[in-house]
């Protein structure tokens, strides 16, 4: 694109002459000012306040006092916290690949053009994502029930004894099932929309070269949507580390299986609201935030390096 005569009002994309840089950067600040203000208020301030809180300890006896990094050393030695981190890490390495695998499979199937009723499948697979997590969890919770739930009905109808899906050994898998059900559609949509933007001319060229469908998938489609896969993976990692809704809603149905420190987020919640340990809760939240950041960043670096 060539512009013979630039209009009087400078186009934003063109490099500004050095002399005008100062004024321009102020104008830029003017534009992002409102955002920065909101950003500082709703993000930076709470984070700063959490860090501030994490340096104190407010006790029932003895009141509030500065403890430096004591809360951090305590958290790093806290078995309950690390058990919770281990639990979500296990959840992450098992549930996320399964969920993304299914989502990818479905997206590829939809994109293949060989499916009848494509839009029907697309909407039904996406539908669970539209169900609020609370409703979804309760619904599954009632199905899992061995006494009055679906599992109980199957047991009594066929005289079998299925395992109690809400028992300590099974409940993490049961939560994984709920989360997978909820988010396959969402991830499918990310993958599917990435697949839709691949120019069809590539497929035509591949066909002329004699490539089969599998070859097209592995050589064109998957590399083309790598970015989307990395995004979905990072969202899923964050989601796993922040696991809270499902265990906390399921807890009344599985009181003895889901402890109040089941996931890091649930632990911070319990510390704050049951134990009034706001300071320690803030500390745990910050440590968990850092862990999530590091893991998400590592995955992103790796994913993007391959893609480049």
């Amino acid at each position: 694109m060539t512009t013979l005569q630039p209009p009087a009002a400078a186009e934003p994309r063109q490099a500004p002459p050095p002399a005008r840089r100062d004024r321009r950067s102020w104008a830029g600040w003017g534009f992002i000012g409102p955002f920065v203000a909101v950003f500082a208020l709703v993000f930076l301030a709470p984070i700063g306040y959490s860090i501030y809180l994490s340096l104190f300890r407010d006790q029932l006896i003895g009141g509030n006092h500065f403890v430096g990094l004591d809360n951090y050393t305590q958290a790093l030695k806290d078995d309950a916290f690390w058990a919770a981190v281990g639990r979500v890490a296990l959840f992450l390495v098992v549930q996320v690949p399964i969920m993304l695998g299914i989502a990818l499979l479905v997206a590829l199937a939809l994109d293949s053009g060989r499916l009848y009723g494509k839009s029907f499948f697309r909407i039904t697979i996406f539908l669970p994502y539209a169900v609020p997590a609370v409703v979804a969890t309760l619904m599954w919770g009632f199905m899992y029930g061995t006494k009055y739930g679906l599992v109980g009905d199957i047991n009594s109808a066929f005289g079998v004894s299925l395992p109690d899906l809400l028992s300590p050994g099974w409940v993490l898998a049961s939560i994984g099932n709920i989360v997978t059900w909820e988010f396959v559609g969402y991830n499918m949509l990310i993958f599917y929309s990435a697949l839709r933007v691949i120019p069809t001319s590539l497929y035509e060229a591949a066909e002329i070269d004699g490539a089969g469908q599998w070859r097209i998938i592995s050589s064109i489609k998957l590399p083309a949507i790598r970015g989307a896969v990395v995004i979905a993976t990072i969202f899923s990692i964050i989601g796993s580390f922040q696991l809270f809704n499902e265990p906390s809603i399921l807890r009344p149905l599985a009181l003895n299986s889901i402890t109040t420190d089941y996931t890091p987020n649930f632990y911070t919640y319990s510390l704050s609201f049951n134990g009034q340990q706001h300071n320690y809760s803030a500390t745990v939240a910050i440590i968990m935030g850092v862990i999530t950041m590091v893991v998400a960043y590592a995955v992103q670096l790796r994913g993007m390096r391959k893609g480049a």
Partner: peptide
Amino acid sequence: LRGLALLSTLALGATACG
């Protein structure tokens, strides 16, 4: 994404009052 990862995870801090 980096920003999102950072923000969404750090925004957990519970608020409390002395």
